[in-house]
């Protein structure tokens, strides 16, 4: 009886250790998800929103304006709490023809008394529309610096491609303004949407 109890105990200890190992491994797996997740998204493109490089992949078509089609474009402006700015869209929604160039303005004001630099990050919803929304000129292409309490208008010139799939008749362009820390470099060019304005076709 006692032998069996001892054997049981060593068995139990082994199983317990093994299971504790699993627990530690899974805790580590949670943290391993951080780089793995980014890698996975880059390889498979699962997280389309994070793939800003696809924006502008389809060139604005030059075969004229599609006068028969209306697309509703909505504008959304968000400021990350780390940036002491007010930021809003002057135009909230507009109806556009694909192939035609439009211009809208965003208002930004520095609420603080010191010079602050920010960077706007665009994203388009639904994500399927992302490649068909071309920004010809955008304040998001560069970092923006506002001196203390400075107020400014930020223009955006854009065009919706005539290749936009039939089923999409409304899209939202959303900007999130983030703070760029002093001395921090602007994100590498490769991370930003290509400058379509430089395209000689236009």
């Amino acid at each position: 009886m006692n032998d069996q109890a001892t054997e049981n105990r060593s068995n139990n200890r082994r199983t317990t250790l093994l299971l504790s190992g699993v627990v530690v491994l899974m805790f580590g797996f949670g943290f391993a998800m951080v780089p793995l997740y980014n890698l996975f998204c880059q390889v498979t493109g699962t997280q389309s929103l994070s793939q800003r490089s696809t924006i502008g992949q389809i060139r604005p078509s030059t075969d004229g304006v599609d006068e028969n089609r209306w697309v509703t474009v909505k504008f959304d402006a968000t400021v990350n709490p780390n940036l002491p700015w007010d930021f809003s869209a002057v135009t909230h929604t507009m109806r556009v023809h694909p192939g035609k160039t439009y211009e809208v303005n965003f208002l930004a004001q520095n609420r603080s008394h010191s010079t602050v630099t920010g960077q706007a990050i665009p994203s388009v919803a639904p994500w399927q529309a992302t490649p068909y929304f071309s920004k010809l000129e955008c304040f998001c292409f560069n970092k923006q610096t506002l001196t203390g309490t400075q107020k400014t208008e930020m223009p955006l010139r854009f065009m919706v491609s005539t290749d936009l799939p039939e089923e999409i008749n409304s899209m939202t362009l959303s900007y999130s303004f983030m703070r760029l820390k002093e001395g921090e470099k602007q994100p590498a060019d490769a991370d930003l949407p290509p400058l379509i304005a430089a395209n000689p076709d236009n």
Binding site: L19, V22, V23, V24, M26, F27, G28, F29, G30, F31, M33, V34
Partner: peptide
């Protein structure tokens, strides 16, 4: 439980 609870623990720790 031992497979998924540690992942939540990792998440809330982050």
């Amino acid at each position: 439980l031992i497979l998924v609870v540690p992942v939540l623990a990792g998440g809330v720790t982050m």
